[in-house]
């Protein structure tokens, strides 16, 4: 019974419940024409677990994935064809940002910021969003090192 095995089992043990939770979100997203099948939900959870491992993070709930779905499903740029791919990309960007901003910004604010860029200057382009978010992280880190920069008070 080793510690990291136990932590790893968190993600695995919750799979069946989490899939149902995600499919349950269809009630909200269908008004935007977006739906998840159980298999798609499962693939999202698998991607999430991989992204978490890649970014050396542990999450005890699927709160972030649910919030990403709820917030981004309202975007005019989101469509069913690229729904899963986009959500996977968004998860990747989110956990990258989470590490780069050293856990100083809350989940909701971080997702909100991603959404603002996605719907605004990026006009639904994931590539653009990724580069904008990298820029944001770089500025944020500079702000941490030099607290007097223009970003002060942003949080």
């Amino acid at each position: 019974m080793n510690l990291s095995d136990m932590l790893h089992s968190i993600q695995l043990s919750q799979n069946s419940n989490t899939v149902m939770e995600l499919v349950g979100l269809n009630k909200k997203t269908k008004e935007h024409g977006l739906m998840l099948t159980p298999d798609e939900a499962k693939s999202l959870v698998i991607s999430r677990n991989k992204v978490l491992r890649d970014h050396a993070r542990v999450e005890m709930s699927i709160g972030v994935l649910k919030e990403l779905i709820e917030v981004f499903s309202a975007s005019p740029y989101m469509n069913q064809e690229y729904y899963i791919d986009t959500l996977n990309e968004l998860q990747e960007i989110f956990y990258y940002l989470r590490n780069e901003t050293e856990d100083r910004i809350g989940d909701t604010k971080l997702i909100q910021r991603m959404n603002d860029y996605y719907n605004g200057p990026c006009a639904g382009s994931i590539e653009l969003l990724r580069s904008k978010m990298e820029e944001f992280a770089e500025n944020y880190r500079r702000d941490i090192s030099f607290p007097d920069s223009i970003y002060k008070g942003d949080e």
């Binding site: 990291s4 932590l7 709930s61 709160g63």
Partner: peptide
């Protein structure tokens, strides 16, 4: 974990989680 992040974040680094565990 929630107490630690004061409800702001649902994830922490593996290092933090292992330390808390």
């Amino acid at each position: 974990l929630l107490q630690h992040t004061q409800g702001e974040s649902s994830s922490v680094t593996t290092e933090t989680a292992e330390g808390m565990m």
